[in-house]
C-alpha cells in the first residue's frame, strides 16, 4: 500500500515537473546550444536549408515549392497517418514526400542529408510546445509504445521506465540520468561528435542494456516515439539541441 502510494506520488511529480535534458546538461553544453553561432547542429541545418530549396526527383519540385510555412509542424510529430493506418515520424514523412511527391529516391537513414532536412524542419518549431496527439486511431499505438517503454528487456533486464521515470535525476556513471524527452532531435551529441536522430539514441540505449535494437523504421520504434512525444507534451522544441 505504501509502495503503491509512493509510486503514484512519483508519477504525479513526473507529470508536474517535466525536465528537458537541457536542464541536466553542463553550463558549457548549454552555452553551446544557446548561441546559434556555436551550435554545431547548425552545420546540418545549413545543409537542410539548401536541400529544402533544391528541385529534385522526377517531379523536379523542391520542398519549398509546396510548403510555404512549416512553423509548428515538427511539434506535432509523430502523427497518425490515416492512409498508412499507423503513426509516422517526421523523418518518415520527409522520406514519404520525397518518394511520392518529388519522385526521388529515399535518403539513407541517419544520413547527413536526412538529418539536415529534419533539423531544418524542426528548427521552424523551436520554442513551441510539443503537442503530440494520441486521440482516436492513434490510441492503440500509444498504448503499444507505452508498453514497450515499460517492458524489461536485454541481458540487464531493464525497461526504459526504470531509469527515465523511476531514477531520472540520479546518476549513472557520473552523468545525470535525464527524463529522456525527445524535444531536441535531431540533436548534436558531443559523445557522437555529430548529429543524430532519436532512433539512434534509442538504439544506443538498447545496446546499453544489451538488448537487440529495433530495426530502422520498424513499427516498434514509431510506437515508442509516439509515446515519448506524448510524454514530452508541453516541453519546448529545442531542435537542434546540444547534449553531452
Amino acid at each position: 500500500m505504501i509502495w503503491r502510494l509512493a509510486f503514484a506520488t512519483m508519477l504525479v511529480l513526473a507529470a508536474a515537473d517535466k525536465r528537458s535534458g537541457y536542464q541536466d546538461a553542463s553550463p558549457e553544453t548549454r552555452a553551446m546550444q544557446d548561441d546559434d553561432a556555436s551550435n554545431p547542429g547548425f552545420l546540418w541545418v545549413q545543409q537542410g536549408e539548401t536541400l529544402w530549396a533544391e528541385r529534385t526527383g522526377n517531379a523536379g519540385r523542391s520542398c519549398a515549392d509546396c510548403h510555404a510555412s512549416i512553423r509548428g509542424v515538427a511539434a506535432r510529430y509523430p502523427v497518425f497517418d490515416a492512409r498508412l493506418g499507423r503513426p509516422i515520424t517526421l523523418a518518415q514523412r520527409i522520406q514519404q514526400c520525397r518518394v511520392e511527391r518529388q519522385g526521388a529516391g529515399p535518403l539513407a537513414p541517419d544520413s547527413d542529408a536526412l538529418l539536415g532536412l529534419t533539423a531544418y524542419v524542426g528548427l521552424q518549431s523551436r520554442g513551441m510546445p510539443i503537442q503530440v496527439s494520441i486521440d482516436g486511431p492513434a490510441r492503440p499505438f500509444y498504448e503499444a509504445g507505452k508498453a514497450l517503454f515499460e517492458t524489461r528487456q536485454g541481458q540487464f533486464n531493464l525497461s526504459c521506465a526504470q531509469c527515465h521515470d523511476g531514477l531520472a535525476g540520479q546518476r549513472l556513471a557520473g552523468s545525470v540520468i535525464p527524463q529522456g524527452h525527445p524535444n531536441g532531435y535531431p540533436e548534436y551529441r558531443l559523445e557522437w561528435q555529430g548529429m543524430g536522430s532519436l532512433e539512434r539514441r534509442i538504439r544506443n540505449c538498447m545496446i546499453g542494456v544489451r538488448a537487440e535494437p529495433f530495426a530502422a523504421d520498424s513499427p516498434e520504434l514509431a510506437d515508442l516515439e509516439l509515446y515519448l512525444g506524448w510524454r514530452a507534451n508541453g516541453l519546448d522544441v529545442e531542435t537542434p539541441a546540444v547534449r553531452p
Partner: peptide, 8 residues
Amino acid sequence: VKLLISHP
C-alpha cells in the same frame, strides 16, 4: 568573429 567548420 565566430566560426564553425564541418570537419571530422
